[in-house]
């Protein structure tokens, strides 16, 4: 538990809490971006350089942008006037508090955790590349297929059907 870790972790958690509780959706999305960047910093703090940079590239550069685009396309960029919480929100919060208590208790009292003070492992880009091309080549191919399928699927779902084009043009 070093000082940088505590600082980054608290910024990340605060931003995550803000992302889930602010009224304005665009503010939520920006707080979410801070969360993603904070998580990337945590990965870097844990010596996972490649994963940290990939996290920034994909989450900050793509997912966050996708989310703000979706917010603007669904015209929810303005601060809403009605309630922002779903009817049964109290149960949701209670269950998540329960989940956190259970997980936290388990983490603090577990005896199965590996012993700390291991030396910083080597995770060079070369190693990762070699693993990707040898042991993990099948998952890599499957991910490629999944991304292609997701891309085609997203385009088809978001594409306007020809019939509804006229009526669906303006709400």
């Amino acid at each position: 538990m070093s000082l940088p870790f505590i600082l980054i972790a608290s910024v990340t958690l605060l931003a995550a809490a803000a992302a889930m509780s602010l009224r304005n959706l665009v503010h939520c999305a920006l707080a979410l971006t801070v969360t993603f960047a904070g998580l990337a910093a945590l990965y870097l703090n844990l010596d996972a350089q490649f994963a940290g940079f990939a996290q920034i590239l994909v989450y900050v550069g793509a997912v966050a942008i996708l989310i703000v685009f979706a917010i603007l396309l669904t015209r929810s960029g303005d601060t809403p006037n009605q309630a922002i919480l779903a009817p049964g929100w109290i149960y949701g919060i209670a269950i998540s508090a329960l989940v956190f208590t259970a997980l936290g208790w388990a983490v603090l009292n577990s005896s199965a955790l590996p012993k700390p003070a291991a030396p910083a492992p080597e995770a060079t880009v070369k190693n990762i590349g070699e693993w990707l091309m040898s042991k993990y080549v099948l998952p890599l191919e499957v991910i490629g297929l999944l991304l292609t399928a997701a891309m085609i699927g997203a385009v088809i779902i978001a594409l306007r059907e020809m019939k509804t084009k006229m009526e669906g043009d303006r709400p």
């Binding site: 538990m1 972790a9 889930m20 844990l46 989310i67 919480l85 149960y91 998540s96 700390p116």
Partner: peptide, 28 residues
């Protein structure tokens, strides 16, 4: 230990995400 710190942060993040996912009205 540092590992426990990470796991606690991750558990809290999970709980925040879960609470938001089930209790907010907006789909995004």
């Amino acid at each position: 230990s540092p590992l426990q710190g990470c796991l606690l942060v991750s558990a809290l993040l999970f709980a925040i995400g879960f609470a938001g996912a089930v209790s907010r009205r907006h789909a995004i």
